[in-house]
């Protein structure tokens, strides 16, 4: 069954572009051009995900999200030209599941849609997340016994060194590791001028687990201190 996605934006071209993007990914797309329309469509038909702009006539995105949240629990991705941290926090706190700033990266948007849908339709692996062998962090799940990292429940192929780094960071979520410490614990050697070496590996892991490696969400550099996987 094709998942049905509602795209809401007052800019018809953008709606169309997103629709094209998503249809290519084999989704069914419904279109709306303001908040009121969006609410009507949601009332009429079964929708699995909503991508909604913030600044719209009649009823703005944030209000629409609040209205929707009164009844429905479907994933909502906010799409806005406002890229400030405060805007993101506001959007997420009133009930949106994700926030994508304009101009968006089409591939990233597609990936986020996929991620949200998977979690909404499969509802995650509760058993897995309950197991002590698993470390669950947002999109990521790391099985300590298998030493396998899953993103959106898909296993990620990592080299041995990368696995060691992921193992270290996932088992210590949120803790900042200086490059030297990572090097010492992963390579088991005395660390000297290892910043570049560690960085190379970090970048490669990012490319495998992040949607947008240039703006990482999970594997982050704490500038002037070290590296960490952010706790979600």
């Amino acid at each position: 069954m094709k998942e049905r996605i509602l795209v809401v934006d007052d800019d018809r071209e953008i709606v169309k572009a997103i629709a094209l993007l998503l249809e290519k990914e084999e989704y069914e797309v419904l279109k709306a051009y303001d908040g009121m329309q969006a609410l009507e469509i949601i009332a009429e038909s079964q929708v699995q995900l909503i991508i909604i702009d913030v600044m719209m006539p009649k009823l703005d995105g944030l209000s629409a999200v609040m209205k929707i949240r009164e009844k429905r629990n479907i994933p909502i991705i906010l799409l806005s030209a406002k890229s400030e941290d405060t805007d993101k926090v506001l959007g997420l706190s009133i009930g949106a599941d994700d926030y994508v700033a304009k101009p968006y990266n089409p591939a990233e948007l597609a990936a986020r849609v996929k991620s949200q849908l998977r979690r909404y339709t499969c509802l995650g692996d509760i058993n897995a997340s309950l197991s002590t062998a698993n470390v669950v962090n947002g999109r990521l799940r790391y099985n300590k016994e298998e030493r396998v990292l899953y993103t959106d429940e898909e296993p990620v192929k990592l080299t041995a060194t990368e696995t060691k780094i992921v193992d270290l960071l996932m088992c210590n979520l949120g803790r900042v590791f200086p490059a030297e410490e990572i090097y010492r614990r992963v390579w088991n050697e005395e660390a000297y001028a290892v910043e570049n070496t560690v960085m190379v590996h970090i970048r490669r892991i990012r490319e495998k687990i992040e949607w947008n490696p240039k703006e990482p969400e999970y594997l982050k550099v704490v500038w002037g201190i070290g590296y960490k996987i952010e706790k979600k």
């Binding site: 800019d11 071209e13 953008i14 997103i18 993007l21 030209a81 304009k102 101009p103 968006y104």
Partner: peptide
Amino acid sequence: KTPLTSIISY
């Protein structure tokens, strides 16, 4: 940003 979004998308 709004027209830019369209440009990039298309």
